[in-house]
């Protein structure tokens, strides 16, 4: 058994997905999660490509950035809100 046998597309994609999933679950900071989400998505993309459905892969590739941007935006916004609320707690009035 040669270790390089594991370097076929199946195992790589599975490992990528599992790593991504575990990363999403164990890392608590949303930004880290976002990165791991991308890792998982790439793994899935690999699977789709290995199934030879290039059009599906195209759709995934198109929707990838959209979800990333949405996540990013809402993370930033929520951080913003929480900061404000904290300031508010200290008695500062925001107009």
């Amino acid at each position: 058994m040669i270790p390089l046998d594991f370097l076929n597309i199946t195992w790589i994609s599975i490992i990528l997905m599992i790593i991504g999933a575990l990363g999403i679950i164990w890392l608590i900071k949303p930004i880290d999660k976002l990165i791991m989400f991308s890792v998982m998505e790439v793994g899935f993309l690999l699977v789709v490509v290995s199934f030879k459905y290039l059009d599906v892969a195209l759709v995934i590739a198109l929707f990838g950035p959209i979800s990333t941007v949405t996540f990013l935006l809402s993370i930033i916004k929520i951080n913003d809100i929480r900061k404000r609320n904290k300031n508010n707690l200290e008695g500062e009035i925001i107009d």
């Binding site: 935006l73 913003d80 508010n88």
Partner: peptide, 20 residues
Amino acid sequence: RKHSVFPFPLKLDMEIMTTA
């Protein structure tokens, strides 16, 4: 009400939001 019921603007300038 002053700062909550209506969404307040986001100070953000992301490259992707303008070009992509």
